[in-house]
Structures are given as structure tokens and as C-alpha cells.
Amino acid sequence: MTMPADDKKLTFLKFRDQSTLGGEMLMYSLSKQVAALLGLCLAGISMAADYSDGFVADFRPDFPAAVKGEQCVAPVEVMRRNHMMLLFHQRDRTVYFGERATKYSLSGCLSCHTQRDTQGAYIPINAPGQFCQSCHSFVSVKIDCFECHATMPRQRAVFKRTAVDEQN
């Protein structure tokens, strides 16, 4: 007997989530563990040296605020820690099942967080100091999303092969 289509999909999805965890997320969870260990070391050092309360300085990346919207798709604390999980999950649902809801999609991020320059033109979100890049360089996590994905919202492709060829 065949399973109902939706059950089959969920099984498949479960598999994909696990395999995602096994693959690229391995690096992520490894880095988490390393961070935890580093945190422990830091605590140890601070205890040994008996620094004053001000030891942990006011570190934070400097990134521009969202252009529009009052509230992100999830609470800030959730987004800070888990945005990659949400993105990975949405990504697989979109690629494999064609679910293009923008709630947790990368283009959803772009639509609120892309800045414009003084002329009103979009600035790529992976440019230095921009939303994605500022945080990711702060925590030294390289992302390769934008090797393929668009870095700014765009309604339609503006390029016409013949026109461009003639100009050049």
C-alpha cells in the first residue's frame, strides 16, 4: 500500500532535515560547541584573574536597522540564534515542494533589510557594513548564500541580450 502523499512528503522532509543536520549543520553545531567551550575558558580566565564587572566589553556588530516593518517574522532572540535553521528549512520546502511562502525566505530578509544609497539605489545586502555582512564578519562565519542568490530585491530582470550587446 502506498502512503498518503502528504505523509510520504513529511517522511522525506524529516530525512532531509536530519541529513542537513548531518552535513552543513555539522559545522554549525561544531562551532556552537567550540563557542561554548570558549565561553567556559573565558569564564575561567575571568575567575582566575578576578576582573571587575566591566570585563566583558560592549561588543556588538554595527548594522543598519530594518528599512520597513515593525517586527521581524520571529522574535529577535529567535532570529539571532536560529535564522539559519529557518532559512534552511524554508529553502528545502521551496526547492523540493515549491512552497514559496516568503515568511522565512531569503528574499523576505532582503525585502526589509536592504538599504538604499543616497541616490535611492539598492546596496547589496552582503556588502561590508550591510545587514548580513556586518554580523557575519563580526562572528567570523562565512556564508555562501550570495554566490548564487540575489543580493537586492528586484522586480524583474532589466537586461535584454540584444540591447546590452549593442551598448557594449
Binding site: 502528504d6 512528503k9 522532509l13 532535515d17 543536520l21 520571529a74 529567535v78 536560529n82 535553521m85 529557518l86 534552511f88 528549512h89 524554508q90 520546502r93 515542494f97 515549491g98 512552497e99 514559496r100 511562502a101 515568511k103 522565512y104
Partner: peptide, 18 residues
């Protein structure tokens, strides 16, 4: 993962289908 699945289910119910 659980969080993400739950989130996606809500998204489904409200919007597009697989």
C-alpha cells in the same frame, strides 16, 4: 528542527501548498 517544522506548518496552512 521542531521549531522550524512548526513554523513551516503554519506558513503552509495560511499560504501556498506543496
Amino acid at each position: 528542527v521542531d521549531l522550524a517544522v512548526a513554523a513551516s506548518k503554519t506558513a503552509n496552512a495560511s499560504k501556498d501548498e506543496a
